[in-house]
Design a protein around this nucleic acid. Sequence first.
DNA 1: CGAGGTGTTGAGATTTGTCAACCTACGTGG
DNA 2: CCACGTAGGTTGACAAATCTCAACACCTCG
Lengths: 245, 245
Amino acid sequence: MHTSPQLPSCGHLEVACSSSCLRELCLPEGFSATELETLDGLVSTRRKLRRGDALFRRNDPFTSIYAIRAGSFKTCVTSEGGRDHVTGFLMSGDLMGFDGIGHERHGCDAIALEDSMLCVIPYARLEEMSQDFLELQRQVHRVMSREIVREHGNMMLLTGLRAEERLAAFLWNLAQRLGARGFSSSSLILRMTRQDIGTYLGLKLETISRAFTKLCDDGILEVHRRNVSILEPATLQRIAVGTAP
Amino acid sequence: MHTSPQLPSCGHLEVACSSSCLRELCLPEGFSATELETLDGLVSTRRKLRRGDALFRRNDPFTSIYAIRAGSFKTCVTSEGGRDHVTGFLMSGDLMGFDGIGHERHGCDAIALEDSMLCVIPYARLEEMSQDFLELQRQVHRVMSREIVREHGNMMLLTGLRAEERLAAFLWNLAQRLGARGFSSSSLILRMTRQDIGTYLGLKLETISRAFTKLCDDGILEVHRRNVSILEPATLQRIAVGTAP
DNA sequence: CGAGGTGTTGAGATTTGTCAACCTACGTGG
DNA sequence: CCACGTAGGTTGACAAATCTCAACACCTCG
């Protein structure tokens, strides 16, 4: 999601694609070396996208899961009224496309927020290999399960927090994820517009803007357009969980 | 979720548990007869719960998926501030517990909204059998994928609709699901409180109450406490998608 | 019969949305 | 290299939606 792509190695393993774009499919203890080699067979091709390009669109037939190697994406749905609703932001190491399995078509658009690169994992191959490697099947389940849990968290964010708190939670989450990837978790560059953040958080862009200003005034952030510095992480987190004074 | 438990048969098959509580695991074309017999081996035990009982609680170790045979549940999380947030309502035929796979612990509480009965599917057994039956593995993926899609829909509901529209969407969805199970889709009994609906929809209970009154005044519903009759389904749906006049 | 949980309604406070003006950075084309 | 157009971002004043607090009605259950 940022410059200086120093991805954390996936455990002690350094197999080309497994250590980068298959991060999410690598598990703590991991696979045996031979298994891991086979795993590389999961990836059929790489794909490059430029900022603004669509990886897939709603109702496109579902064929593959994608692992983000570099860059970042938003997933969004255009509702009846023509309004865009962002349903998620994804960054390097994240897997994308699980929403397509259920109905054999993608349920949303996936748009690159910057020039990006990803690995294509044909779903049929993932199915096959899951039959042979119990550990892979398990990991696929885990990844999907965690996506469900994450959405529950998002729901609580939307139902339980007020504007400023939602933005705090959003930034906190982003910072944590960047941190987990070896980037700075205190200084980040937003790759999305205020509008995108707004529809993601269920708020208007003006409200997002005001919430930013408020967090700045309170000395918690420093914001210059899309550059955000978190000056008081502890306070930000406190606001994010909705238990601030 | 209601009286008169006339469940639709799962395809042309009538195997005891497969046709009722494994509804979601049965797919259109389905399994062969022998496969289906083996599938019954998925279920270890039945369990009965009384209204208010917890099937599992947040952080309980995850062991099983549950298939609701009769009755209904809510899943909810108590946030730091002590507020209860409902994350979902489930009814007969639904599967519950996938949120636990990712972290080996349940991510929410599951509470019976009425006296209920369910089948216990030990996850380890599901894993094993998925290795042998590709079709079962596929179906598990599909079910989880659809849960992800459903959550996206919920998110859009929360970010895009206003109070009255959210309630309309909620009722419309409930009615459709009841209809799909062979119950009336125009006359329903709510098994949850206004409070529950409120935290699920991100609104206060008073707002829910007022939205009910509004929909009644407009002649779209007839409401007596928890009994709801949908007088104008078409209008209700139009409101639910946020494109009403 | 009384108590408590649940649901409704009202009045006023808060939060968020709306509309409009303006600013700023960035990319394009002259 | 500069000028200008445009998308993105900020801010203000006001409107609208929702929340809060409080009173009361209703039903169920012991």
